[in-house]
């Protein structure tokens, strides 16, 4: 079976995100004063071959913890969908 993983990696809430802060400030320049607390992370997609969803999930988690996400500064969530 082949699965597609949609992975979101975000900086920890407690950490300053200077990129998000700069974008938040520019929202005011656009007149979008209702928008606050922009935070910027990464969205990663990948395909994984596995016998079932549980094994696919385990592989994606492995990829996230070993390379895609540095858990000192970021956290990750992902969703899997089966693709034909």
């Amino acid at each position: 079976m082949k699965f597609k993983a949609n992975i979101d990696i975000m900086p920890h809430e407690a950490l300053l995100d200077p990129q998000g802060k700069a974008v938040t400030q520019s929202m005011g320049n656009l007149g979008l004063n209702e928008i606050s607390n922009v935070r910027i992370g990464k969205h990663i997609t990948l395909f994984v071959d596995a016998d079932n969803e549980e094994l696919a999930s385990s592989k994606v988690k492995d990829a996230c913890t070993k390379l895609l996400c540095n858990q000192i500064m970021e956290n990750f969530t992902f969703e899997l969908q089966e693709v034909s």
Binding site: P11, P18, N70
Partner: peptide
């Protein structure tokens, strides 16, 4: 870890 400088 080393993060983006606080003023980007």
């Amino acid at each position: 870890a080393l993060l983006h400088n606080n003023q980007q």
